[in-house]
Design a protein around this nucleic acid. Structure first.
Length: 360
DNA sequence: AAGGCGGGGTC
DNA sequence: GACCCAGCCTT
């Protein structure tokens, strides 16, 4: 029996009930695919539902402010996805009359839409016969056909894309692509595949050769870099000093408590004072240090040791571009960088009274 | 071809 | 603690 038929039969019985599978609205498919880039289904679900409540259709998103759009992405990571999605949606709204285009060249030309996402949108929303090669499909097919190349290499992706194209269902390309992803996430999983439950076990070359546990081959990632940071929770009355990160790079455009990197050895507080001094032009009285706490954040790329200093300086005049005094009540309008979001919640729980009481 | 870009779940 | 996830963009 053909792979496509076995797969689709299995999919009919075991497909997941997901919010973005309720209908074939291209806009909804598009949003879901962007959110799902490098992000697990369970993490996306609540974000997708909130998103559709606020931006139910393409036009409502196209007319929204970027600041609000990014706020709805806060905590999901890879924030350029939100900005690219907004840009792409505005493009469709203006250049395509609000209708998501139906050709590969047009869709892939939209901001934030690459080869995979274009294939997913076209196959799922319009039932076009386009492959959608993601991590799941690479893993499944590297096993099915015993592809021993490093699947992160463009050459391997090209080869597997051809194999997928050869096996694709003519009538249900969208279901075929989604079935592959469901299979990859529940059966053909990274470490020890559950071959006993797999509808394709009989036609899997890796299993036939006893190599299902060794595939796919994937090059190792570089180890994370260690970084020491120190951040200041700096208050004057009801206002806190916050910093908006630059528009490019890590956590682009997100807000944070003013942060200084500790590069050399020495007293962290001393380095903090000097660094903040450069940003503010004013000296912080360290005698007014209220609380110091340390968080460790592990990350794929960064191993961050984070010191927080809660201080109450005499007088600070911001002279750094992104520095701004923000009323505590206005925080909900800002998008905080990950670690600082947790600190913000911590402050909200402790509430100002307990923390600042010693000073008043 | 390589590296940057988040955050969280799983084993 | 290592690994990985419905990838894309820049250099």
């Amino acid at each position: 029996m053909k792979i496509a038929q076995l797969l689709l039969t299995w999919y009919e019985d075991f497909k997941r009930d997901l919010p973005w599978r309720r209908n074939k609205d291209p806009y909804r498919i598009w949003v879901s695919e962007i959110m799902l880039q490098q992000t697990r289904v369970e993490a996306v679900k609540p974000y997708f539902d909130r998103w559709m409540e606020r931006f139910p259709d393409l036009k409502s998103l196209a007319e929204a402010e970027e600041e609000e759009v990014v706020r709805y992405w806060q905590g999901l990571g890879y924030y350029s996805r939100a900005r690219n999605l907004l840009q792409g949606v505005r493009e469709v709204n203006q250049s395509y009359g609000g209708q998501v285009p139906q050709t590969k060249e047009e869709v892939i030309g939209l901001a934030g839409v690459g080869d995979y996402t274009a294939g997913a949108i076209l196959s799922i929303a319009y039932n076009k016969k386009e492959p959608a090669i993601d991590g799941n499909v690479l893993r499944v097919f590297s096993r099915l056909f015993c592809v021993e190349e490093d699947i992160s290499s463009p050459a391997a992706k090209k080869n597997i894309k051809q194999l997928v194209a050869d096996e694709m269902s003519e009538e249900q390309p969208g279901d075929f692509n989604q079935a592959l992803m469901d299979l990859g996430s529940s059966i053909c999983i990274p470490k020890t595949p559950r071959c006993a439950l797999c509808p394709l076990a009989d036609c899997c070359y890796a299993k036939r050769n006893g190599k299902e546990g060794q595939l796919p081959v994937k090059k190792k990632k570089a180890p994370p870099k260690a970084v020491r940071l120190i951040a200041g929770v700096i208050r004057q009355g009801e206002f806190y000093l916050l910093h908006q990160r630059p528009n490019k790079g890590l956590l682009a455009g997100m807000w944070e408590f003013p942060t200084v990197e500790i590069k050399e050895d020495g007293d962290p507080m001393d380095i903090f004072r000097q660094g903040i001094h450069k940003k503010t032009g004013q000296v912080i009285e360290l005698e007014r240090l209220l609380l110091q706490c340390t968080h460790i954040f592990s990350h794929r790329q960064w191993d961050i040791s984070f010191h927080y200093c809660i201080v109450a300086p005499d007088r600070i005049v911001p002279n750094d571009e992104g520095l701004k005094w923000v009323n505590r009540r206005d925080w909900e309008k800002l998008s905080f960088a990950g670690p600082h979001r947790k600190m913000e919640k911590y402050l909200a729980e402790k509430n100002s009274q307990e923390i600042w009481q010693a000073f008043e």
